[in-house]
Design a protein around this nucleic acid. Structure first.
Lengths: 116, 116
DNA sequence: TAGATATATGAACATTTGTTCACATGTATA
DNA sequence: TATACATGTGAACAAATGTTCATATATCTA
């Protein structure tokens, strides 16, 4: 960042900078997408698309360790993408809101478009 | 993955596994979101939201190195999130399609919902 | 043609991240 | 109450990732 960069289009740069969302908002947005950007977490979300599930069953469905799933569920929980309810020693996880589904579907749209 | 996991709800697991998208599709989806999951790339996309821009101006607008921007533009290009056109020695980048905007906005919706 | 400018790229380095392993916590049941 | 079971969690390790630095490539202009 120490290099000297000349501005080719000062008007454009000024207008663009003025129109951009707050630094913090963009950071939060990147953090949100980061959560979607892991195949284990995407698989978990995809599974919960169908119905709520407990931790052990998710692990079996994905062929992964209970511990790995639990770690990732924590990430999804912190991002408010999933919610949970306890029933005795079993914990059931479910998608938290419909934004998850919509973000998911928009992503699929883009991917399918690529394959035309 | 060597541990023994018992299935608590065999019916649910079977139904969920049957309903999930193909492994490869979910992998590609995660790869797509991974591209959105970096604040530099999010800022670049956010900037291009307003108008097309050349590499140097993006660097100035974001206060970052030309090299860093160029590296990230390559990632965005590979994911088909941006396209470019050359005009002499200047290269202008722009958003590739509207899915980018929609995914972006869905993400913002989720974030704003969190702040209620 | 030589030099300046805009962009691209490879290697190196530090940081982040996901899984594993071992074990802690909490709950049901014999 | 002791044991089994479901889940959560910290530390360690390997792999992936983003930036920097140096330099390559391409194009314009004096």
């Amino acid at each position: 960042m120490t290099e000297e960069l000349s501005v080719l289009h000062p008007d454009v740069v000024a207008k663009v900078k003025a129109s951009m969302a707050a630094e913090e908002t963009l950071y939060d947005l990147a953090e949100l997408f980061k959560v979607f950007g892991d195949s284990t977490r995407i698989k978990i979300l995809s599974a919960l698309f169908q119905s709520e599930m407990c931790v052990g069953d998710i692990a079996v469905a994905l062929g992964m360790t209970q511990s790995a799933i639990s770690h990732q569920l924590r990430v999804l929980k912190q991002a408010k993408l999933v919610r949970y309810r306890k029933e005795g020693k079993v914990v059931y996880y479910a998608l938290d809101d419909d934004h998850v589904k919509e973000i998911f579907h928009q992503g699929l749209n883009h991917i399918n478009e690529d394959r035309r």
